[in-house]
């Protein structure tokens, strides 16, 4: 069935509007000169960005989120790549079990993963101490994204290149480092960006597992908005959106064409 082009175009505009409007509203609201988080903004100003930059609570939260995201991304890259290599090179029930296991946090509601981890860590007597539970949660949340991206970049590949390297005298490790790793680098980069952003943004897992002390940015924002309603929250969001955009663009410029 053929859909008329103008109708299709209108549909497309609607979808983009639906997706982008909230972001546009938040960004515009952050330049608000007024005292309350309103839209349309009451005059333009950068005062709330200035306020935010002097607010140690938010700066700490951003730093904390960035470190947490970087650490969980690093761990996810290693585990996710290993799982992807296993899945692509093996067939049958074992490989399928690995795939479902790794993707489970993506399939289950985030809150279930979080509650399950909470029970588990209290059961083994660690609870939410030392951020171990929070970190584990973030690794689980980011793992599927590394796994899916690396799997995709492996699947189109010719398996025999690594074997060819072996016949030429490369050990298993050297063959991986010199041949497979460069070939899956675009998938690793995309997976890393996704993982970082997911960890940076995720709420449910952080909310339930964060424990006492400093909290990731989304939690800090939520706490702030419960008692305050200033455009500072929008300013924080704008900065966070900007960080995400920079990351995605950088990854796309570096690897986009190869991936």
């Amino acid at each position: 069935m053929q859909i008329a082009t103008p109708v299709l175009a209108l549909f497309r505009v609607c979808i983009y509007a639906f997706l982008l409007a909230p972001i546009v509203v938040v960004v515009l609201a952050s330049f608000n000169a007024g005292n309350f988080l309103t839209f349309p903004p009451q005059g333009l100003s950068l005062r709330w960005f200035w306020t935010f930059l002097q607010n140690d609570v938010f700066l700490d939260a951003i730093a904390y989120s960035a470190i947490l995201a970087a650490a969980s991304t690093a761990v996810s890259l290693v585990i996710g790549t290993m799982a992807a290599l296993y899945f692509v090179r093996h067939a049958g029930r074992e490989a399928e079990t690995v795939r479902v296991g790794v993707l489970l946090p993506l399939i289950l509601p985030e809150i279930l993963t979080a509650i399950a981890l909470l029970f588990f860590f209290y059961e083994i007597g660690i609870g939410t101490e030392h951020k171990i539970a929070l970190f584990t949660g973030h690794v689980l949340m980011t793992l599927p994204f590394v796994f899916l991206n690396v799997t995709t970049s492996l699947q189109g590949r010719d398996d025999s290149v690594e074997l060819a390297a072996r016949t030429l005298g490369a050990s298993r490790y050297t063959a991986f480092r010199r041949i497979t790793l460069p070939l899956i680098a675009p998938g690793l980069a995309t997976g890393a960006v996704f993982a970082f952003i997911i960890s940076f943004d995720t709420f449910g897992v952080s909310f339930i597992l964060k424990g006492t002390g400093s909290a990731p940015l989304p939690i800090q924002l939520y706490d702030y908005l419960r008692f305050n309603f200033t455009p500072e929250a929008a300013a924080v969001s704008t900065v966070s959106i900007l960080l995400t955009l920079v990351l995605v663009t950088a990854a796309d410029l570096l690897f986009g064409r190869k991936a």
Partner: peptide
């Protein structure tokens, strides 16, 4: 020395 059906050249 081995030659593969897919050639298996390093792309």
């Amino acid at each position: 020395g081995m030659v593969f059906q897919s050639y298996a050249l390093f792309p």
